[in-house]
Design a protein around this nucleic acid. Structure first.
Length: 199
DNA sequence: AGCACGATTAACT
DNA sequence: GTTAATCGTGCTC
């Protein structure tokens, strides 16, 4: 009955999960209202050896969630201003997470428009901080299990994408991170146009 | 207890 | 292209 992606989807290699999440639908359940969008861009952060991942610091109060079971939301504050949404990956004990960086809004556009103020639709959810503003996601959602039927945030099937449309590249905003982590192609993105006009 | 910095964004010039 | 906004986190003293 439930169409929520199960823990087994997230409990895999982080890079593979990041790739597979592109084209899927992210849903925020707000009361009875669905606010959703097709995932257009993700990034993988995996392991203590990944110097761009928060887990480079090992187990700390903040990173503990990434060492736990997969499918949980990992949400943190960046620049003292914006919340960023990730989904925990890998088996328990192996830290990893996928950052959700961009969406194509589908349901609840009126609510999204309200939350995004005067921004044009093009910029409603084209960044990780913007997504959390648009969907009303904050620290209260950290650690929530997205795989339960009553989850307030979860992933379900979305667009069927030709794998050839998914582009890879270096993760964004890592200018001070040493190689090879700075340039490793763990960013996955599909062009919005492809979703608008079909694949 | 203090400090430097960041997986960003919006509003500038 | 440049820059201010703003604070939790992890590290050093």
């Amino acid at each position: 009955m439930s169409n929520h992606f199960p823990e087994s989807f997230f409990s895999r290699d982080t890079v593979q999960v990041a790739r597979d999440l592109v084209g899927k639908r992210l849903v925020r359940l707000e009361g009875n209202q669905r606010i959703s969008g097709i995932i257009l861009e993700t990034e993988a952060y995996r392991g203590e050896e990944d110097l761009a991942c928060h887990c480079r610091a090992g187990r700390t109060p903040r990173t503990e969630i990434m060492y736990g079971p997969a499918g949980r939301a990992y949400i943190y504050l960046i620049y003292g201003m914006y919340w960023l949404l990730n989904f925990v990956t890998e088996s328990e004990g192996s830290p990893g997470a996928v950052l959700i960086r961009a969406l194509a809004p589908e349901e609840g556009k009126e609510k999204i428009s309200q939350r995004r103020g005067n921004q044009p639709e093009k910029h409603w959810t084209d960044g990780p901080g913007k997504i959390c503003i648009a969907l009303g996601i904050n620290a209260d959602f950290n650690g929530l299990n997205s795989c339960t039927p009553q989850a307030k945030i979860f992933v379900e099937n979305g667009q069927d994408l030709d794998p050839g449309l998914i582009h890879t590249g270096p993760r964004v905003g890592l200018e001070s991170v040493p190689e090879p982590w700075r340039s490793i192609p763990w960013r996955f993105v599909v062009n919005y146009q492809h979703l608008l006009y079909g694949s």
